[in-house]
Amino acid sequence: MSADKLIDVRNLNVTFKGEEGPVYAVSDVSFDLAAGETLALLGESGCGKSVTMKSLMRLHPAHKTRIEGQINIDGVDLLSMRPAALSAMRGKTVSMVFQEPMLAFDPVYTVGDQIIESVMRHEGFSRVDARKRALEMLERVRIPSAAKRLDAYPHEMSGGMRQRAMIALALACKPKILLADEPTTALDATVQIQVLLLLKELQRELGMSMIFVTHDVGVAIEVADRTAVMYAGRIIEEGPVDDVLSNPWHPYTQGLLGATVHPGMDRKQALPAIPGSPPQLTRQITECAFAARCSYRTDECMKPMPAAYQAQTRAVRCIHALAEV
């Protein structure tokens, strides 16, 4: 592992012990991230993006989850960390903006109290100073009448305000790594671009690294240096964001980009969704996980999948994709 890697994930597997047997949510995922770098995580709904992110903070309930592989965060082996060290790390070294704002905020406390509490705990600030920091953060994420909203309960905010408040909470302790799970989907376009620019500014200021989960290719282009595309629990394509998005190699990435609604599309035409549905994650998939839906499929695709093919700065998990390159 090289020293400049803030995050280094090797062969991560996350399995849930469900009532109906195991769910293989994340399979053999490897990636790394340097300081100041941003990775956009794209992919199918249910492919394991949030599960991967939560693993980086070890937020899965231990008794129901099996995590294998290696996760190094800022040089520390996350999977062997003790509870005290873990809770010191969460919100300080690594911070997360959750997909569901209601999960981040406790409905019985005001938004301000929750930010203040976090700042007092991690930064050792007095209550007065922590309140100042909380207010400053709410203002930076452009919450209207921020001073008033400090005393608002989560349910008293609109969806977009809650999401911005969560970004404020996540950034309040100036983390080294920000995991942002669809942080701008609930925002209108004018606020979204402000928040994206703000995150980039804070990133420069703090040298922060980001992983950005998004379904919006436009957002990925705006913030990310690299992108990883996930499908059925694995990363199937990875590389510089411009290269991957302007010239996708994996048939799934091609299908995904092809299904995107573009401005001024013919409204009478049905949208070109990828036919079929993703595989069940209740069995361990060894072949190419996309094979059942892929128009390039051959018998080769059904054999155990080799590791990702590397080509210069890019990687892809499809035996046919590379032949074309």
Binding site: S45, C47, Q99, T185, H215, P272, A273
Partner: peptide
């Protein structure tokens, strides 16, 4: 449909 990937989104919009 905002939390859906673009292919599933296309499917739901259809």
């Amino acid at each position: 449909v905002s939390a859906l990937d673009k292919s599933v989104q296309a499917q739901v919009l259809n």
